[in-house]
Design a protein around this nucleic acid. Structure first.
Length: 395
DNA sequence: AAGCTGACCAACCGCCTTCCT
DNA sequence: GAGGAAGGCGGTTGGTCAGCT
């Protein structure tokens, strides 16, 4: 749309804002709020278009803005977020309190890009430059004359593309080592996860990880591959994930339900998620392992942990959406994989909604790149299948 | 001192989405 | 459902300033 139609009706000022204009706008919005931006300039006595007022407010006048240089922590966070989100500056800014998308964008283009290149990392793909060059060898010249303009994170794949990611966890005989094998070309994820180490305090077959650890190694992608989702529950009020539930000898990465209520200080996602804290697990069903599903329901108050003996679910909420993991007892020999019908088009969910989903924002998902999850969700990690009544997700 | 260059940053432009009629 | 208005976002531009030649 560009400039609003009002901009053509009268001669409006452009360019830098004067202190007087700032004062007028600030005074008006402080007193009345912005309301409809198109009417703000008229009511505030400004010869500007509403869009310009909005931009000035958001980028400069807003009282909650943090002025001044970015610190190292913020820069690192931006890099991490960019690796996941690509050039979605507004979403990156949403996770940096007091910073604007414009500010972050400028910083990226003027500073961080250069630093990454100097460090031998391609700022667009977050891969080593040498690897990017190798990738480009043998490829025909891009049709885009300015490939840099396609500034999308490498992991920000189109839905039609398949991200070949699979983590596998394994443990040594004594269960003390937890290794992660990213079988993916995407170095980003490795970089991303590197900051979230996984220490193991181990018993025989169960490795307990700290929240961030679990996050780092939560192989959600497994959901993409058949019915062995591998969630399990035990009596210590913890939700466990078995990276290879088909084999009982495999280590079980365990995390306590409380760990799903994170405050990720200094880490990637700082937005708190809301998890119904009173999760109680069926004592009579200590090791139910089964399907996982993502559901979206409307009412957080209705979210809960529930179990009917054969299936259990934990519903999580972020903002207006609730997501749930359903845990169906596949331990029963005759248990059929459960397929639940979900209402609505999964494509209704915007990426931002996926991002806001608790399992993405929360500790459990940190190292496994939200973007990767996004890709997989979009590409069928839940195997959406069109039905007459909506979509069916089979894990 | 003058000119050049690059970094930085505020603001604009244009596209897309959402909302409203 | 169509169309217009408005909001939101990302890409780009252009002005300013500091450092260098």
């Amino acid at each position: 749309m560009g400039r609003h139609s009002c901009c053509y009706k009268q001669k409006l000022r452009k360019g830098l804002w004067s202190p007087e204009e700032d004062e007028k706008l600030l005074n008006y919005i402080t007193k009345h709020g912005h309301g409809c931006w198109s009417s703000v300039p008229r009511l505030a006595g400004l010869q500007r278009c509403g869009k310009s007022c909005r931009l000035r407010w958001i980028n400069y006048l807003r009282p909650d803005l943090k002025r001044g240089a970015f610190n190292q922590q913020e820069e690192n966070l931006i890099i991490e977020l960019h690796a996941v989100l690509g050039n979605r500056w507004s979403q990156i800014a949403a996770r940096l309190p007091g910073r604007t998308d414009n500010e972050i964008k400028n910083l990226w283009n003027s500073c961080i890009k250069k630093k990454l290149r100097q460090s031998g990392i391609d700022p667009n793909t977050h891969k080593p430059l040498s690897e990017v060059e190798n990738d480009n060898k043998g490829k025909p010249p891009t049709a885009n004359r300015n490939s840099e303009k396609v500034s999308v994170g490498s992991n920000e794949l189109k839905f039609s593309e398949k991200l070949p990611i699979e983590f596998s966890c394994s443990s040594s005989s004594n269960g003390n080592n937890m290794t992660r094998t990213p079988q993916t070309q995407d170095l980003l994820l490795e970089t991303f996860t590197a900051s979230h180490y996984c220490s193991t305090s181990t018993t025989t077959t169960t490795t307990s990880c700290r929240p961030s650890d679990v996050v780092g190694y939560f192989p959600f992608q497994k959901l993409n591959y058949g019915p062995n989702i591998g969630f399990s529950m035990n009596q210590s009020t913890s939700l466990s994930y078995n990276p290879n539930s088909s084999s009982s000898s495999e280590m079980i990465s365990e995390f306590n339900s409380q760990t799903v209520i994170p405050t990720m200080s200094g880490s990637l996602f700082q937005t708190p998620i809301h998890v119904k804290p009173s999760v109680s697990l069926p004592s009579d069903n200590p090791s139910s392992v089964g399907l996982c599903e993502m559901n979206r329901v409307q009412n957080w108050e209705g979210s809960s942990f529930s179990s009917n003996g054969s299936s259990s679910s934990i519903e999580l909420q972020f903002e207006s959406n609730v997501y749930s993991w359903g845990l169906t007892d596949c331990g029963k020999s005759n248990a059929e994989p459960e397929i639940r019908t979900l209402e609505g088009d999964p494509d209704d969910l915007k990426w931002s909604e996926y991002l806001n989903a608790p399992f993405l924002l929360g500790t459990t998902m940190q190292s496994q790149s939200s973007q990767a999850m996004y890709n997989e969700v979009k590409q069928g990690i839940f195997a959406p299948e069109t039905t007459e009544s909506g979509f069916r997700y089979a894990c």
